[in-house]
């Protein structure tokens, strides 16, 4: 199984604030890979760097062997790499249907778009019912469904998902994760899933990384990560102290 997406020593900053301090990870074709980390660890920054929203200061992002770091976001979408952003980011005053059409902005094949529209309505029947409604009027869960559906309309081979469970009830979270799993299994879409909710993420992920203060501090298969003592304590039991110990976690808290 080849790697579709590879990050090598990626460093990204916001002005003087260095958010990523050399992140390397590999996403194999057809798999679900998760990146776990507390608030502020650099998860969103990692995904923004991959999507071309910010250019890394150092390091490479390789998509299917080609370096894409620093490319314009629309070229990256056209290449087949789409993100479901943190906090859904729907177009609030556009109808659900127009939001979906914007997901297909980079495409020219009207027939394919119509097929994919039917496909996402199959995954999320509620979106068909609400097709004419403004996206801003949907509930949080429905907006998350819309954000996922909108990304699928680009017909991506890789989807980046930034905390899809954020702010959702456990029941809705489970629903969303079931669909993420189905999209991966039924459509062969590779998924890079970023989460604070390690419990759900490790259930669906083939492989996982743990990100702390801009660095990968641990990696293993999803099943084995779920077994590890410190992951269980810190991410699954939500006790204090990071994988690298108490001090770092305290410092992180201060930064927020």
């Amino acid at each position: 199984m080849g790697a579709v997406l590879e990050l090598a020593n990626v460093e990204s900053s916001y002005g003087p604030v260095q958010a990523l301090r050399g992140v390397s990870l590999t996403v194999p074709e057809g798999k679900i890979v998760t990146v776990l980390g507390a608030n502020g660890a650099g998860k969103t920054t990692t995904l923004k760097t991959i999507s071309g929203i910010i250019a890394p200061r150092k390091g490479q992002v390789k998509f299917r062997g080609e370096e894409i770091q620093g490319r314009a976001p629309d070229r990256i979408v056209r290449a087949g790499l789409v993100q479901v952003p943190e906090g859904r980011e729907v177009f609030p005053l556009l109808s659900v249907e127009d939001n979906l059409r914007m997901g297909a902005y980079t495409r020219r094949d009207a027939d394919g778009v119509a097929q994919d529209l039917a496909m996402v309505f199959g995954y999320f029947p509620i979106l068909r019912e609400r097709a004419r409604q403004e996206a801003g009027q949907l509930s949080g869960g429905q907006q998350q469904m819309l954000a996922i559906a909108r990304a699928l309309l680009a017909r991506p081979s890789v989807v980046l998902m930034d905390e899809p469970s954020l702010g959702l009830s456990p029941k809705l979270t489970k629903e969303i994760f079931d669909i993420i799993l189905r999209i991966n299994r039924e459509r062969g879409v590779t998924i890079l899933l970023v989460e604070q909710n390690a419990h759900m993420a490790l259930k669906v992920a083939d492989y996982g990384y743990v990100l702390e203060v801009g660095r990968i501090v641990m990696e293993d298969t999803g099943a084995r990560l779920a077994e590890k003592e410190d992951i269980r304590e810190f991410y699954l039991g939500m006790k204090s102290g990071g994988v690298r110990g108490e001090r770092r976690w305290k410092r992180k808290k201060l930064w927020r």
């Binding site: 976001p73 629309d74 990256i76 177009f91 556009l94 980079t106």
Partner: peptide, 20 residues
């Protein structure tokens, strides 16, 4: 036209959707 509206409403999301 819809893309112009979308860009006005949420520029970041427009970038994510590959709208130039």
């Amino acid at each position: 036209g819809v893309a112009m509206q979308a860009t006005s409403q949420n520029q970041l999301a427009a970038y994510y959707m590959g709208i130039p």
